[in-house]
Structures are given as structure tokens and as C-alpha cells.
């Protein structure tokens, strides 16, 4: 469904992505693991054109885009068929929870305000926050904000959602509620690419795991294989460090 080929990106001579290719099938959850600075965030940002790649191709079903030279129309088309969940939520500070979820529907998709409101409230109820519909983000906890961030993504009915470390800005006791919502998204059959350091969660929820380092895909495969029998030495070193750091949240 979604296929990425030969993505390259440099920041001032520093090569951050060196020929990254990746496949995501319908309804599939792909997790990306890797040490800090390996280019995970940059990869997701290139897919949504928040960063301009230097090269690479992207195919989303019938939409075929050259990442480096895409025109406005293709950029908009890609953004309107996908959604993004940010590490620090990025809820619109000038809008209530309900308005945050409605914004993309009304302004980008041209849905009528009444229908958008109905859909937004359904989405908020679905993440368990209908009672906070009228609150501004500044008055919500990180976990609540991120759940609204996910509702804002899901309500757009995207073909794939990109999530960049959706829980890493949260206090440990709030991680669980957000992971539960992401599980629900997976259950709905919406494809996702998740960058995460939650190893146990990645193992449980993903169909496919990708390990990146130094801007390259080092190893990929089904979660059982990556976590139990990694082939590459670098994957093994990375996982060993994470697993001994007691970074395991079983929820």
C-alpha cells in the first residue's frame, strides 16, 4: 500500500538518511527502532513534507510522488491522506479539544461544521475524553493531550498514521493510557508507522519491526525475529542496552 524507495536527506552536509526503503501493507503496524540521531524523526517528517527529502519515491496506492520535487498539489494530497502524531502533541493552543479534532475536517476536507462536530465528539468519546471537549490544551495533562492528538489524526480517516515517539514526552504513569488508544487504532485496521522506544509495546502491537542506525535500515522483520533472534550485531547491542535499562513497560 505505502512504499518508500531510496529516501535520502542531508542537513548541511551531514547525511541523516542514506537510501532508506520501506513497505507498509494495508492495516499494518510498522515500528521503527533505533538509537538517538539515527534519522527516525527525519524519515517521518520527510514523508509528510515537513522536511524536504533530497531524493526518494513514495507510493501510496495510486498516488505516486517524487519526494524531492513534489508539487504543492501532491504535497497536499499526501497530507490529506495521512496523519501525523507528534512527540510533543502540538495541539492547536488557540482551540478547544473539540475544535482541535474538527479543524482538519472543516478547513481541509470541507466537512460541514455540524457533521464535523458530531465526528469530533465521536472521536473524543472513543479516546475517552468527551467530557474534556470544551477544554483548551493548556488545561489538559500530557496523556490527555496526546489522546486528543490521536483522535485528531484518526478522525481524518487516514490511510496511514505516522507517530513520532508518541509517549516519550509523558510521565511514566501516563504512558499506558496512550498506548491503549494506539492499540485501538491498530485494531481498527489503520496502518501506522510508529517510532518508539517502548520495546515491549512495539513487540506486541507491530506486524513488522525496522531497526535503523546512522540513517540506514540495518535490519527488519517480524517482531519475534527482531527481538528474539536479531541477525545483526548492531541490533543486538541496541536491544541489549534497552532491555537492561529496564525500559520495559508491560501494560
Amino acid at each position: 500500500m505505502l512504499s518508500l524507495k531510496h529516501i535520502r536527506k542531508s542537513f548541511d552536509r551531514e547525511e541523516v538518511l542514506r537510501d532508506v526503503s520501506l513497505q507498509v501493507r494495508h492495516g499494518e503496524v510498522v515500528s521503527i527502532l533505533g538509537p538517538s540521531g539515527s534519522g527516525k524523526t527525519t524519515l517521518l517528517r520527510c514523508l509528510d513534507f515537513l522536511e524536504r527529502a533530497d531524493g526518494g519515491e513514495l507510493t501510496l496506492d495510486d498516488l505516486h510522488v517524487d519526494l524531492a520535487h513534489a508539487k504543492r498539489r501532491d504535497v497536499l494530497a499526501m497530507r490529506r491522506r495521512t496523519a501525523f502524531v507528534f512527540q510533543n502533541y502540538n495541539l492547536f493552543a488557540n482551540k478547544t479539544a473539540r475544535e482541535n479534532v474538527m479543524e482538519g475536517l472543516v478547513t481541509a476536507r470541507g466537512v460541514s461544521p455540524d457533521e464535523a462536530r458530531k465526528k469530533a465528539e465521536e472521536a473524543l468519546a472513543w479516546v475517552g475524553l468527551l467530557d474534556k471537549a470544551g477544554e483548551y490544551p493548556s488545561r489538559l495533562s500530557g496523556g490527555q493531550q496526546q489522546r486528543i492528538g490521536i483522535a485528531r489524526a484518526v478522525v481524518l480517516d487516514p490511510e496511514v498514521i505516522f507517530l513520532d515517539e508518541p509517549t516519550s514526552a509523558l510521565d511514566p504513569e501516563l504512558v499506558g493510557e496512550v498506548l491503549n488508544v494506539i492499540r485501538e487504532v491498530a485494531r481498527r485496521g489503520i496502518a501506522m508507522i510508529i517510532v518508539t522506544h517502548e520495546m515491549a509495546f512495539a513487540r506486541e502491537v507491530s506486524h513488522h519491526v525496522v531497526f535503523m542506525e546512522g540513517g540506514r535500515v540495518i535490519e527488519e522483520g517480524p517482531p519475534e525475529q527482531i527481538f528474539s533472534q536479531p541477525r545483526e550485531e548492531r541490533t543486538r547491542t541496541f536491544l541489549k542496552r534497552y532491555l537492561t535499562d529496564s525500559n520495559m513497560y508491560y501494560i
Binding site: R79, T82, F86, G104, R109
Partner: peptide
């Protein structure tokens, strides 16, 4: 900057 990026990601021009 995240405010602009979130808006673009939601499909706004």
C-alpha cells in the same frame, strides 16, 4: 513551529 506543522499535517494549506 509545531503549531504550523500540525496544521499542515492536518491537511491545511
Amino acid at each position: 513551529a509545531g503549531q504550523r506543522e500540525a496544521a499542515l499535517a492536518c491537511g491545511l494549506t
